[in-house]
Amino acid sequence: MTDSSANLDRFNALAAEWDDSPLRAGIARAVAAAIADALPLHKDMQALEYGCGTGLVSVLLADQLGRIVAADVADQMLAVLEQKRLAAGLDHIETRRLDLTLDPLPIERFDLVFSSMTLHHIDDVPRLLGRLRDVLVPGGWLALADLDREDGGFHGPDVPGIFHLGFERAQLMNTLTGLGLTAVSARTAHTVEKSSPAGEPRRFPIFLICGQLP
Rank of each mutant, 00 (worst) to 15 (best):
R97V: 09
E49Q: 02
T2A: 02
D3Y: 01
M77P: 04
L128E: 05
Y50I: 12
L102W: 03
L39V: 06
L142W: 02
E150T: 07
V80L: 05
A71R: 00
D103L: 14
P40A: 09
T188P: 04
A36Q: 04
L128C: 05
D123E: 15
L78N: 02
D111G: 15
V80E: 15
P138N: 07
V80R: 14
T182Y: 00
A33T: 03
R187A: 09
A34P: 12
R187K: 10
D37K: 06
D19Q: 03
E200C: 03
L176G: 13
Q46V: 09
R131E: 02
G152Q: 08
D158A: 15
Q76G: 06
I68W: 00
L41K: 05
G152A: 07
F163L: 08
F11Q: 01
A183Y: 03
D123F: 13
L136I: 01
R109L: 01
A47F: 02
G152M: 08
P214K: 07
E200Q: 11
W18K: 03
L208M: 10
H164I: 05
L65A: 08
D3Q: 11
C52I: 07
A16K: 09
G199N: 08
F114T: 14
L128P: 11
F163G: 01
V57P: 00
G89C: 13
E150A: 07
Q212T: 04
T101C: 13
E200H: 08
V159R: 14
M45L: 14
S115N: 06
A13S: 14
R131P: 03
L181H: 05
T182C: 02
G211Y: 12
H190N: 11
P157F: 09
T101R: 13
L179A: 01
A32D: 03
G51N: 03
Q46E: 03
G178D: 10
D158N: 15
C52Q: 00
F11V: 03
P40D: 07
T191R: 14
G139I: 04
L48R: 05
V125Q: 07
R29P: 00
D99Q: 11
D148I: 09
A170M: 13
D37R: 08
D158P: 05
P160I: 05
D103F: 13
V59L: 15
L65H: 01
A189Q: 02
G130H: 02
R133N: 10
D72L: 12
S116R: 00
Q64C: 10
L142T: 06
D99N: 14
P197A: 12
I68K: 00
D72W: 12
L78I: 04
D9K: 11
Q76P: 06
L39H: 10
L98A: 14
D37F: 01
G180K: 04
L48H: 03
L142A: 05
L98T: 13
I122G: 07
R127H: 11
I122R: 10
D148K: 10
A6R: 15
M45A: 12
A28P: 12
P160K: 06
A33K: 03
K84M: 12
